[in-house]
Design a protein around this nucleic acid. Structure first.
Length: 612
DNA sequence: CCCCCCCC
């Protein structure tokens, strides 16, 4: 049988032209050292007229060679390929062809010999041979280096949109962009057309090697996904431009091996923007480019998921807390978070914690549909909630069928449906998201029954205070707050430090009763919380108790029957066979009536389904 | 060149 090779196709391709599905013969292959398991293979290919050893097999096709399916003398049709120019090869520029998809027309064993008499094609042929023959389809003939000319074109169009007779983005079809899966450090001239799946906040760093700022983004196309990071100048240059869900042409980034420890994206490489990087938004229809794929878990099912598992969720945001600031224990970093309560048709409600910029920007006032791909299940005090990671793809009112279904459900009665808050069953900041509970709800939910105790917020009135023992003389050591024993000789003994001191500090330990319309509770307020309740520093309260008893009594009279927004921690403890809730004041704040009224209105709306 | 993903 005679095999017909696409004579002359190599010359076209190696001149940067396009040739549709050339048929070639493989004359040899050679393994070149890749990093780790990423071996790559170089092929010697022939079109019958020329042979060329600068063809490389895309790594995803390695198996063809390893299995022997592709071997010497095989005749193949190259369905998909890209070329790129390598610099610094020692012999000037070298163009390589990367084979992305092949069909084997005849196995090497069947062909058994070299077809024709191909001459070794060299880079010199470019200048000695005639210009490339007419390609198979309209092609950028003025573009001996595809990536380069596209890059220039972007540069021009960014500077002056109407410029450039050569190429504009409307001419950029899929033929001319490179699949993300084909990118590697071996190729430096390429253009990808990619959708932004996720974009990070700007982060700064400071370490022994210096300091700076960066942001990163996750890109995808039909072939795969890759992370790109923009540092310093590039961070400033591109942060505002890059928008989630939009599609961009991107060229001239630096590729490097991805550290798998820090990414879940399916790519062996990641890229960094460089001063030469060009980004141009794709203005034509890019609906063919994949969007984020979801695998939503019904909210009520999340209660059965393991902690730390990663999942996708979508729900109506029924409620969101204010932004709270906190300090990370391990890093000392100042963090901002907001807790959004999501509900869906499963009848479940769950808290989703947003961080940083996403927390600040979030607006729950219109009860948006919120979706999160890759949120992490967290467990606190035995209850499940979700937390966003840097890799989580968060969307408000995403254009997906589930979102439209939820909107319809919520606006037609779903808002009034009873939900089971799986983030509040037996722990956590109960009621989630800054919701206020009553004592009867605390009882109904059996808060405090768990191992670690439960936190909740409640508006209550101080109905009684144990004023007599509210202040004591404490060990003056910084970390030691032990009550001192008066030695009656001007010295005070600390049993914990096993030392005597001539001095002491006053600390507060206030026992009290708090009531709300549904019940009451014996509570304890330690130093800072008690100072907040009394509105006086412990030192002043101590002086009053010792030197101005009437002022001391007056202080407690004034505070009695005041209303506070309390944050409590409660835990069941057993004293001499009797189980009792031990409830501690974590914080006590005066009521902000504006905020309180807003909460009541929200609650009325949620319960009645009627917009107030 | 980062690599943190936090808290009650």
């Amino acid at each position: 049988m005679a095999y017909k090779l696409s004579e002359g196709s190599l010359e076209i391709i190696m001149n940067g032209g396009l040739y549709d599905k050339p048929v070639m013969q493989v004359l040899g292959s050679k393994k070149i050292q890749g990093s780790g398991s990423n071996d790559r293979f170089r092929l010697l290919v022939s079109d019958g007229k020329h042979s060329h050893s600068f063809a490389m097999l895309a790594t995803q096709l390695n198996e063809l060679l390893i299995s022997g399916e592709l071997s010497d003398y095989s005749v193949v049709q190259i369905n998909k390929f890209v070329t790129s120019v390598l610099k610094n090869t020692g012999k000037g520029e070298k163009r390589v062809m990367i084979v992305l998809d092949v069909s084997i027309i005849a196995p090497g064993t069947e062909v058994g010999k070299k077809l024709g008499n191909p001459q070794n094609w060299s880079e010199d042929s470019v200048t000695t041979s005639a210009p490339a023959p007419t390609p198979m389809r309209p092609t950028p003939q003025a573009a001996p280096s595809l990536g380069n000319s596209l890059g220039n074109s972007f540069g021009n169009s960014l500077a002056k949109p109407a410029a450039g007779p050569n190429l504009d983005s409307s001419m950029l079809g899929s033929q001319m962009t490179h699949p993300i899966a084909s990118l590697s450090p071996y190729q430096n001239k390429w253009v990808i057309k990619a959708r932004v799946m996720n974009k990070s906040d700007i982060r700064t760093w400071s370490n022994a090697r210096g300091e700076g700022k960066l942001f990163s983004m996750d890109l995808c196309d039909e072939s795969g996904e890759i992370r790109a990071t923009a540092f310093k100048n590039e961070c400033d240059k591109f942060y505002d431009m890059i928008q989630v869900d939009k599609v961009y042409y991107i060229s001239r980034c630096q590729l490097k091996t991805a550290n798998k420890q820090f990414t879940t994206l399916k790519n062996d490489y990641e890229m960094s923007f460089t001063p030469d990087t060009v980004v141009a938004e794709c203005m034509e229809d890019a609906s063919a480019l994949p969007t984020v794929k979801y695998d939503f878990v019904p909210i009520s099912d999340i209660a059965n998921k393991n902690s730390d598992s990663i999942l996708d969720v979508i729900g109506v945001c029924k409620f969101a807390s204010d932004v709270q600031e906190l300090t990370a224990k391990t890093t000392g970093k100042l963090l901002k978070k907001r807790e959004a309560t999501l509900v869906d048709q499963s009848g479940g409600a769950i808290t989703l914690t947003l961080w940083g910029n996403e927390a600040e920007k979030f607006d729950a006032s219109s009860n948006p549909i919120v979706s999160a791909k890759g949120a992490r299940v967290a467990e606190f005090n035995g209850s499940k909630s979700l937390s966003c990671l840097a890799s989580t793809m968060l969307r408000c009112n995403p254009n997906v069928p589930e979102a439209h279904r939820l909107r319809g459900w919520y606006d037609n009665g779903g808002a009034g449906m009873d939900t089971v808050n799986i983030s509040a069953r037996s722990g956590g900041q109960s009621g989630g998201s800054g919701e206020w509970l009553t004592f009867s709800e605390v009882e109904a939910r059996r808060l405090g029954a768990g191992e670690k105790g439960d936190y909740f917020t409640l508006v209550g009135v101080l109905t009684f205070m144990f004023a007599d023992n509210a202040v004591y003389k404490a060990c003056p050591q910084d970390q030691c707050n032990k009550k001192l024993v008066d030695q009656e000789n001007g010295l005070y003994r600390c049993e914990k430090c096993n030392r005597e001191y001539p001095n002491y500090k006053y600390r507060l330990l206030l026992g009290a009763n708090v009531s709300d319309p549904t019940g009451d509770q014996r509570i304890t307020a330690f130093n800072e919380a008690a100072e907040a309740i009394l509105g006086q520093p412990a030192a002043d309260v101590g002086r009053m108790s010792e030197y101005d008893k009437s002022a001391y009594t007056q202080l407690f009279e004034e505070v009695k029957f005041r209303t506070y927004v309390f944050n409590f921690r409660t835990k069941m403890e057993t004293y001499s066979d009797e189980a009792k809730l031990k409830t501690t004041v974590m914080s006590a704040k005066p009521v902000d009536y504006r905020d309180a009224n807003a909460k009541l209105v929200k609650s009325i709306t949620a319960l009645s389904g009627i917009q107030v």
